[in-house]
């Protein structure tokens, strides 16, 4: 734990050395989020609600999404880069330290632009999403579970690169896909797509279930969310450990 704190402190120090760019990035990210909310407001303005989704629930969805993304991609910024780092041999310096590689790797870098999300999400929730005590508690728990799913999913994709090769592109595509699907209401998807969102691209756990829980708590759904998060986290940690055995320190690509 001491190492985690020290590592994150250093990561923040580094991000903070360029303050001007830090605030610029944060502002830009928030503007980006607002554009998407504008899209939904325009749509609802024309067609009323969409399968029970209105502007208020979209705001809640964005609050959860940006909070979780801020945690997963802003605070633990290396989560999306594991595959690429493995291919380029960048795990070497981490592996020579007496620490748990995955934990250290994840806490080693923060991404300033996505920290904007981490500010934006809670602001959105507390101003526009009806923050009662109960809702706030579920929002926090749900966002944490959601962030865990995101991180675990990205680590899993990175471990996949270690295990089966490639340059880490599948991480990028998977990352884009899970974020895109997560930024739309789960209820608009049906059939095979919905099944996919509970499994291969776990967007349902990122926004679908947490948002549903904040609006209407249900113990079974909550258990499903936590269980899903725990399962994928475990799977990711194990795959990464297994992947390290196949780690080739970039040798695959530097050798003829």
């Amino acid at each position: 734990m001491r190492i985690v704190l020290a590592s994150m402190r250093t990561a923040f120090l580094e991000a903070w050395t360029n303050r001007r760019s830090f605030w610029l990035q944060v502002t830009m990210m928030m503007a980006n989020d607002l554009v998407w909310i504008a899209f939904w407001v325009l749509l609802f303005n024309k067609v009323g609600d969409v399968r029970g989704w209105d502007a208020r629930r979209i705001v809640l969805l964005y609050a959860v999404l940006t909070t979780a993304a801020g945690l997963a991609l802003g605070l633990l910024a290396n989560s999306r880069r594991i595959g690429r780092m493995a291919v380029e041999g960048e795990l070497d310096p981490v592996l020579t330290l007496p620490v748990r590689p995955l934990v250290y790797l994840l806490t080693k870098r923060v991404d300033t632009s996505l920290l904007g999300d981490l500010i934006f999400g809670p602001v959105l929730f507390f101003t526009l999403a009806g923050p009662t005590v109960e809702r706030t508690a579920i929002y926090i728990a749900g966002s944490l579970a959601s962030a865990a799913v995101l991180v675990a999913f990205l680590v899993l994709l990175g471990a996949l690169t270690l295990l089966i090769g490639g340059k880490g592109e599948q991480s990028d595509l998977g990352f884009q896909a899970v974020l895109i699907f997560s930024s739309y209401p789960l209820d608009i998807f049906g059939g095979a797509t919905k099944f996919m969102l509970y499994t291969a691209i776990p967007a349902a756990f990122v926004t679908g279930l947490p948002v549903r829980l904040v609006d209407e708590f249900h113990a079974g759904t909550f258990a499903l969310l936590l269980g899903g998060a725990a399962f994928i986290s475990l799977l990711a940690a194990m795959s990464f450990k297994l992947g390290l055995r196949r780690y080739s320190s970039g040798a695959l690509w530097t050798r003829a």
Partner: peptide, 29 residues
């Protein structure tokens, strides 16, 4: 053991070495 790879840095580009040593000190207990 100590390791030094000529093409990989253990330092943080934007920070001072002393700041990185502080973290490494924590890592090594």
């Amino acid at each position: 053991i100590g390791t030094l790879f000529g093409q990989r840095s253990q330092l943080w580009f934007q920070l001072t070495p002393r700041q990185a040593y502080r973290l490494l000190g924590d890592i090594y207990g």
